[in-house]
Amino acid sequence: MIVEAVFLFIKSGQEESFEQSFSEAAPIISSMNGYLSHRLQRCLETKGKYLLTVEWERLKDHTIGFRQSPEYLNWKEKLHHYYEPFPEVEHFTIIHS
């Protein structure tokens, strides 16, 4: 299993709209092969900052299976216009829990 982790910085004043759009977009990612789970968390200290984590079976389930799919285009259309700056995605493997 790998964990995709990304800090999302949402344009000021668009937080509620982003959260609603994310709720609508969540079924897109959760329907993908290799998807295990996800969490969207709102930062308590910094307005407009969120942490998205997604658990995937394999790295390629995210980088190829999702990112190169038609479903990703729908995800992108629903969410990418909220980000400023555009987020950097990183992947992690669990070594201890």
Rank of each mutant, 00 (worst) to 15 (best):
V3I: 14
F9P: 00
I10N: 01
E16M: 13
E16N: 14
F18P: 01
Q20N: 14
S21K: 05
S23W: 07
S23H: 11
E24M: 15
E24H: 11
E24D: 14
A25P: 05
I28D: 00
S30K: 12
S31M: 07
M32A: 01
M32P: 00
N33D: 13
G34I: 05
Y35P: 02
S37E: 12
H38L: 14
H38V: 09
R39A: 11
L40Y: 03
Q41M: 15
L44S: 12
E45H: 12
T46G: 09
K47W: 07
L52Q: 00
L52C: 03
W56Y: 05
W56D: 01
E57H: 05
R58W: 08
L59Y: 04
H62N: 14
T63I: 15
I64G: 05
R67A: 02
R67F: 04
Q68I: 11
P70S: 13
P70C: 14
L73E: 13
N74K: 15
K76V: 01
K76M: 07
K78Y: 02
K78A: 05
H80V: 12
Y83F: 15
E84A: 15
P87I: 04
V89P: 02
E90Q: 13
H91G: 00
H91K: 02
F92H: 05
T93H: 12
T93L: 13
H96S: 11
